[in-house]
Amino acid sequence: MGELLDQKYERLFSLLDVNGDGAIAEDDFVAMADRVRASFGDERSLAKGQRYSDAMADYWHALRATADADGNGRIDKDEFRRAVRHVSDNFDTLIGPLYSAGFHFADRDDDGLVDRGEFAAVVAAVGVPADHAGHTFDLLSGPSGTLTLEQLMTAAAQYYCDEDPANGASHQLFGPL
Results as ranks from 00 to 15, higher is better:
residue 88 S to T: 06
residue 54 D to C: 04
residue 10 E to V: 00
residue 74 R to L: 12
residue 59 Y to L: 11
residue 18 V to P: 08
residue 51 R to A: 13
residue 87 V to T: 10
residue 39 S to W: 05
residue 63 L to P: 04
residue 24 I to L: 09
residue 10 E to N: 08
residue 87 V to N: 04
residue 26 E to G: 13
residue 100 S to T: 13
residue 59 Y to M: 11
residue 86 H to C: 13
residue 45 S to N: 06
residue 22 G to C: 02
residue 68 D to M: 00
residue 102 G to K: 08
residue 23 A to G: 10
residue 87 V to Y: 08
residue 102 G to D: 01
residue 50 Q to S: 01
residue 31 A to M: 14
residue 27 D to C: 13
residue 91 F to Y: 14
residue 10 E to Q: 08
residue 64 R to G: 00
residue 36 V to F: 12
residue 73 G to D: 01
residue 98 L to P: 13
residue 49 G to T: 08
residue 17 D to M: 02
residue 89 D to L: 15
residue 91 F to I: 08
residue 26 E to M: 12
residue 38 A to M: 13
residue 111 D to P: 10
residue 56 M to T: 01
residue 58 D to I: 05
residue 83 A to L: 07
residue 94 L to C: 14
residue 106 A to R: 11
residue 50 Q to C: 00
residue 82 R to E: 01
residue 87 V to P: 09
residue 112 G to Y: 09
residue 91 F to M: 10
residue 84 V to W: 00
residue 76 D to Q: 07
residue 48 K to G: 01
residue 13 F to N: 02
residue 69 A to Y: 07
residue 74 R to M: 11
residue 102 G to T: 03
residue 80 F to M: 03
residue 72 N to A: 06
residue 70 D to H: 06
residue 88 S to H: 11
residue 22 G to H: 03
residue 114 V to D: 00
residue 25 A to V: 12
residue 7 Q to F: 10
residue 11 R to M: 02
residue 89 D to M: 15
residue 28 D to V: 05
residue 9 Y to N: 04
residue 81 R to K: 14
